[in-house]
Design a protein around this nucleic acid. Structure first.
Length: 626
RNA sequence: CGGGGCGUGGCGCAGCUUGGUAGCGCGGGUGCUUUGGGAGCACUAGGUCGCAGGUUCGAAUCCUGUCGCCCCGACCA
């Protein structure tokens, strides 16, 4: 009786072949014929249609069995390469006490304002957060475990689900509120050792992405909310990427636009045609209108932006920014400049927004002539503000300091002025790099090189953190000379679930996904064209057993569907190699098709393994390092 | 958070303007036929039209509120 029951179960749960093989009939494969309305970009559509993911809530997805196999493979590659660097795998808590984050000074910044940390209060009234990253936890651990320079360096890593309450989750796994990330943290006795590990991670990352079959580019990056000095991002190049990459054609420079530096194109000199002093500009409140009205070039105009910065535990700070008229404000650079000036540890920047007439009114201040503002705008306009600091923080991009004569607002409606030189302005703003580098700008390293734009999906980011967290959380060790010092730290992330989708974005066609073999859920799919045909059935089964026994990850489409359905599904889910057992089965021949190239050949079934195995072994290596 | 859009069977959608008690395609089930690129015919199951109020003899449809989801933006006025 028991034996009979086990036999019945046998078909379904006790396939005698290795676990690397699988029958489609038992895979719970649910593909969609129509494009789901929610998906915009190809990779998102294909993952939904191919039965890889299902949405559970905004930015929250179930990873179905096929995708899980992909993720496990990516994790495997990540693990091998991290282990190769000597890093140690761990698993850290997702539920983290507020206290740790308060000690690092990030609790407010991550929970208030545009904060991205999910947080809650437990029944004992303790505040907790769901980990968006693990610097605090790992540094606290390091403080506990690391005492002597003899234990250093050490690197811990984990592959873990992270939580971020994104302003706008989008594109499926690309920007989710829950996602899988590999994060690593290294600890060192000195900066030189940190640099060494940082470089080792750079190499490990390049290997990881090559092995995953991804074309990536490494770019200089802003270190953002994580903090620290040097930082580099790894971008999967793709049209739909959310990041703008600026790079030089000679390959010597590449940076995220948030961070990119360039030489501003020279300004057009302002000739003497315009008299110095007041310039009547009725209704000309924009750069474009001003240029049209007076035959000016945007680079001859100095524009003024007013913003309001809110810091924790400080009055709101009005900010006056001067930029050349043809340049764009880089908000990331501005935020960094503001954070530095406020002492980001104790007073993190919570919010930065353009100053509005409504806000002025709410402060009990007189309206300002927006569109006609100039750098000389007096602090007196802020006098009597209810909650603001009554002085502007005045910043200017260096490109304005190079201007000779220029036009700027006169701080009166419908009026600008022509100024003979930057040094005539009072009070003189502080010069800080605030402009966005643009495609076409000359490069710093070689002005003959012009920046070129491309788009990328950030799949990895490495940072030299320095001692920011170890100092805040008092993670110290005893150095060789007996003194107590804060640990030097680095941190290194890879978005595993994002990487899986980025791979689809880079490898697909009209019919579906074309997985790089190294991360494909299966390496080969055997399609039995007609289940009714005994020859096909038995040959398909035989090849299935043969490939599986040879250690190849093989999927057998044994469903009683029509051949067309199976072909469509095979293309959609994107298994790299397809073996069709069809009309030639009786004569012992099969068809071998490569998914990505569509190349096909007929061959005797007896030769299949010998033909396929070398290619699969080669493709498991991923892209070759160049 | 600002703007726009959408919530109708598992998926994709129509119906709403002009209220009268729900429909199409795909998918599911059964049967017959078919069988190398998402088959055909027949039968069949499945929806209190996101939710809550309101107007009305009567609401998927009109009004109010609310929740959810998607897209754009959140920088130069």
């Amino acid at each position: 009786m028991l034996r009979q029951a086990t036999q019945q179960l046998g078909d379904r749960f006790h396939d005698p072949l290795p676990a690397t093989s699988m029958r489609v009939s038992q895979l719970l494969l649910v593909t969609l014929r129509d494009d789901p309305a929610e998906a915009e970009i190809p990779s998102h559509r294909l993952l939904l249609r191919g039965g890889y993911i299902r949405r559970i809530a905004a930015g929250v997805y179930a990873y179905l069995p096929l995708l899980w196999r992909v993720l496990v493979k990516i994790n495997g590659i990540v693990r091998e390469e991290m282990d190769r660097t000597g890093a140690l795998e761990t698993l850290l808590p997702q539920l983290q006490p507020a206290e740790l984050w308060q000690r690092s000074g990030r609790w407010q910044g991550y929970t208030a304002g545009e904060g991205i940390m999910f947080h809650m209060v437990d029944r004992q009234d303790r505040s907790l957060g769901l980990g968006p990253t693990h610097e605090e936890v790992v540094t606290a651990l390091a403080a506990d475990l690391l005492r002597s320079y003899r234990q250093l360096p050490v690197c811990l890593y984990q592959i873990q689900t992270k939580f971020r309450d994104e302003i706008r989750p989008r594109f499926g796994l690309m920007r989710g509120r829950e996602f899988i990330m590999k994060d690593a943290y290294s600890f060192h006795a000195d900066a030189a050792c940190l640099t060494q590990t940082y470089q080792a991670m750079d190499l490990a990352y390049r290997r990881i992405f090559l092995r995953c079959g991804l074309r990536t580019v490494a770019v200089e990056a802003d270190s953002g909310a994580i903090g620290g000095s040097a930082s580099q991002e790894f971008m999967v190049t793709a049209e739909v990427g959310e990041d703008l990459i600026l790079s030089s054609p000679d390959g010597r420079y590449a940076a995220n636009q948030e961070r990119a530096l360039s030489v501003a194109a020279p300004a057009v000199p302002l000739d003497d045609g315009l008299a110095s002093g007041e310039l009547i500009t009725p209704g000309q409140s924009s750069i474009a209108a001003l240029c049209d009205g007076h035959g000016l070039a945007p680079s001859q105009i100095l524009k003024v932006l007013l913003l309001l910065a809110r810091f924790a535990d400080l009055p709101a700070q009005p900010v006056l920014v001067c930029l050349r008229g043809d340049q764009q404000l880089n908000e990331v650079k501005l935020r960094n400049a503001l954070s530095q000036r406020a002492g980001s540890g104790s007073h993190p920047l919570l919010d930065l927004q353009p100053l509005t007439p409504e806000q002025l009114e709410a402060q009990g201040l007189a309206p300002l002539p927006f569109g006609f503002l100039g750098p000389q705008l007096d602090d007196a306009v802020l006098a009597g503000a209810h909650q603001w600091r009554p002085q502007f923080l005045r910043l200017a991009d260096p490109s304005v300091a190079g201007l000779g004569r220029f036009v700027c607002g006169a701080n009166k409606p419908d009026l600008h002025r022509v100024v003979d030189g930057w040094e005539l302005l009072t009070p003189l703003p502080e010069l800080v790099d605030l402009r966005s580098a643009q495609p076409g700008d000359p490069c710093l390293h070689d002005p003959d090189q012009r920046l070129v734009a491309s788009r990328g999906i950030e799949v990895g980011h490495i940072f030299q953190l320095g001692r920011k967290y170890s100092e805040a959380l008092e993670a110290r060790f005893t150095s060789e000379d007996g003194s107590e010092e804060a640990l030097w730290m680095g941190c290194y992330g890879i978005g595993v679930s994002r990487l899986a989708q980025a791979a689809v974005e880079q490898h697909h066609d009209d019919q579906g996904i074309c997985w790089p073999l190294a991360i494909a859920p299966f390496e080969v799919i055997i399609v039995i064209a007609s289940n009714q045909d005994a020859d096909q059935g038995s040959l398909g089964e035989r090849l299935y057993g043969e490939l599986a026994a040879a250690g190849i990850e093989v999927l057998l489409d044994d469903r009683s569907e029509r051949a067309g359905v199976k072909f469509k599904d095979a293309d959609l889910i994107g298994i790299p190699w397809r073996v069709v057992v069809g009309r030639g089965a009786a004569a012992g021949t099969v068809e071998l098709v490569e998914r990505a190239s569509h190349s096909r050949e007929d061959l005797p079934a007896a030769e299949l393994l010998a033909r396929l195995q070398p290619r699969i072994l080669a493709q498991r290596q991923g892209l070759q390092a160049h």
